[in-house]
Simulated scan of single mutants.
Amino acid sequence: MTATVSRPVRRRLRSLPWSALKGIVLAAACIAVIIPFVMVVSTSLAAPDQVNAAGGFVLWPDHPSFDAYEAILSGGTVTRAVVISIGITVVGTAVSLACTATLAYALSRPGSFAHKPILLMVLFTLLFSPGIIPTYLVVDQLGLIDSWWSLILPVAVNAFNVIIMRAFFMDLPPDLIESARLDGAGEIRIFLRIVLPLSGAVLAVVGLFYAVSYWNSFFNALLYLNDTSMWPLQLILRTYVINGSPLGTDSGSSEVAQLPQQSLQMAILVLSIIPILLVYPFLQRHFAKGVLVGAVKG
């Protein structure tokens, strides 16, 4: 009886060093992720003297100030870029969700027209991308150069998201759809009244994927938008951080000229992070369920 009781105790004692080691590793990983984010926010709020004394980056501001944010949001380039990015993200996510959901539902129905050829075409795009030059030529021929639609239409449908949503639709109870069809409902009514209300988890996850992609995208804007007044926030951030170029009217006043370049850079970076941080908590409860869609089942 004594040996039986002591074995679990010994196992727990042996597992204590391993648990402590895992805790230390996880704590170090969390610190490595949190400290850069804190430095970005602190540098954007720090006073110019403290930023210059610290050599460009501040871990904690002594006297927080919003001068950098007031400078970049004073009605110039960054303010316009924020509005453009929000518009592109909202419209692009809505268009992408509509196209992806309708295509995925059609591919999830075995009797739909040209089901297998279209599915093979979708899978083909996962293996082979068209390339930059052919895509640019198509966008140019469609007259989308210097148009915000050039940032939405070429990437409106992602094959990976189509496969995820198709797998979710195929897992829906077929008896529910058949009973609706027997009651006289058409495919469009079934899709809008039955399928979509039951697909909140996958729509939230795929919508988050699309929103993050649209919000963080800058390369397509660099290719297709020659007018700098149409640039989204991420391209303004890239240009300012990498090239150190001025922000147009944002750098015209003497107060802005006195601010350190690092403070302005970090303030723009914080503005580019905030929208995703605000949206993600509302979608987090759907994320765990949605990312498991399409998993291999036994």
Rank of each mutant, 00 (worst) to 15 (best):
T2L: 09
A3Y: 04
P8I: 14
P8V: 06
S15T: 02
L16E: 05
S19I: 15
L21F: 13
G23F: 14
V25W: 04
V25F: 13
L26T: 15
L26F: 13
A28Q: 05
I31N: 09
I31V: 15
A32G: 06
I35L: 12
S42I: 13
L45Q: 12
A46S: 11
A47L: 03
A47H: 07
D49T: 15
V51N: 00
N52D: 01
G55V: 07
G55A: 10
L59A: 11
L59Y: 05
H63N: 06
P64N: 01
D67A: 14
D67H: 11
A68P: 11
L73C: 13
G75T: 02
V78T: 12
I84S: 00
I84D: 00
I86V: 14
G87F: 09
T89D: 02
V90C: 02
V91H: 02
G92R: 00
T93P: 03
A94W: 04
A94E: 06
S96R: 05
L97R: 02
C99V: 09
T102W: 13
Y105Q: 07
H115E: 08
K116A: 10
I118W: 09
L120Q: 15
L120D: 15
L120F: 15
L123I: 08
T125R: 00
I132E: 15
V139H: 02
G143E: 07
L144C: 14
W149T: 05
I152T: 02
A156I: 11
A156Q: 10
A159H: 08
V162G: 08
I164Q: 13
I164H: 00
R166G: 01
A167P: 08
F168P: 12
G184N: 08
G186H: 12
G186E: 11
F191N: 07
F191L: 10
F191Q: 13
L192H: 11
R193Y: 04
P197H: 06
L198F: 08
A201E: 14
V202C: 08
V202A: 06
A204I: 07
V206L: 06
G207Q: 13
F209M: 02
A211D: 06
A211W: 03
V212G: 00
Y214Q: 12
N216K: 10
F219Y: 15
F219T: 11
A221F: 07
M230W: 05
M230K: 12
L233F: 13
L233N: 09
L237Y: 11
L237Q: 12
L237C: 08
R238F: 14
N243M: 10
P246N: 07
L247W: 11
G248S: 08
T249S: 12
D250Y: 12
Q261G: 15
S263A: 09
L264E: 10
I268Q: 04
V270Y: 14
L271M: 09
L278Y: 08
L278P: 12
L283C: 09
H286M: 01
F287M: 06
F287I: 15
G290V: 03
L292S: 13
G294F: 01
A295N: 01
